[in-house]
């Protein structure tokens, strides 16, 4: 049986060129999926949704709201996961991955809140409510900000990595809280509020563009996080010989 030594890719020098080759592909996939999702979401969907108290055109915000919210939670899992791997195996690249994921995760958390506010105003009558899910998503945003602030507040990189990683892991409790925070025991009583959704009950013309946008933003996240990772690797490894070669090569291009 052939075994792959995964730790080989854990070396920043080995992963730097791999990430560089992957970024354009993730970028292309992201652009294609987002364009398909937008076209489908705007042109192949009904203008109104639901029966007696329909959601009007503003429901189309779902095509950015749900994907952003999913990515905000997923990237937090990525952040905490790499933090844990970094603490356990003491691999430098893991901490760099975690640090690279945080700003994009914070961005999607903000977007989930922003697009939710613009959806909430026409459908609930308010931009903001201390609804359990809104509140826990806001706390997730503060956790991302806290991770980044704590990391940049400690000068020694290794200590910053470890302290921020610990915060990220403790903050992991927020993800299941967001997932479970639903204040609606009976979906028929509060159709407009956050409810436990059953993918089977969502109309396909809504579900497909929503999932397409989600995969598009996922591919975008890969590209953005890898791009940030490459800059972090260069900064942290600037003393090593391979970075000198990279700089010499890139400077002439």
């Amino acid at each position: 049986m052939m075994t792959t030594n995964w730790f080989k890719f854990a070396s920043p020098a080995a992963f730097y060129p791999i990430a560089g080759r992957l970024i354009p592909w993730f970028g292309r996939i992201a652009a294609a999926l987002v364009l398909i999702g937008l076209f489908w979401g705007f042109f192949l969907t009904a203008n109104q949704l639901g029966g007696s108290n329909p959601q009007k055109e503003y429901y189309r915000i779902i095509f950015v709201h749900v994907p952003s919210a999913w990515m905000s939670m997923w990237l937090y899992l990525v952040l905490a996961g790499w933090s844990a791997i970094g603490l356990v195996f003491n691999t430098r690249l893991s901490f760099m991955m975690a640090k690279a994921a945080a700003p994009t995760g914070a961005l999607f958390t903000f977007l989930a809140l922003w697009t939710g506010a613009l959806w909430g105003r026409p459908s609930w009558g308010t931009y903001w409510d201390w609804d359990p899910r809104l509140t826990s998503e806001l706390l997730l945003f503060f956790l991302y900000i806290g991770y980044m602030a704590l990391h940049s507040a400690i000068d020694d990189t290794r200590r910053a990595d470890r302290a921020a990683a610990l915060l990220a892991i403790v903050g992991l409790v927020m993800v299941p809280v967001i997932f479970l925070s639903i204040n609606c025991p009976d979906p028929n009583q509060c159709a407009a509020l956050h409810q436990r959704s059953d993918p089977g009950s969502i109309h396909l013309s809504i579900l497909i563009p929503m999932l397409t946008m989600t995969f598009g933003l996922w591919a975008y996240s890969f590209a953005a996080v890898f791009a940030r990772l490459r800059t972090i690797i260069l900064t942290r490894e600037s003393d090593s010989a391979w970075v000198r070669d990279v700089i010499a090569k890139e400077a002439t291009v």
Partner: peptide, 10 residues
């Protein structure tokens, strides 16, 4: 305003 505000910000 709501729809483009959401998509534009994103």
């Amino acid at each position: 305003g709501y729809v483009w505000g959401a998509f534009g910000m994103t």
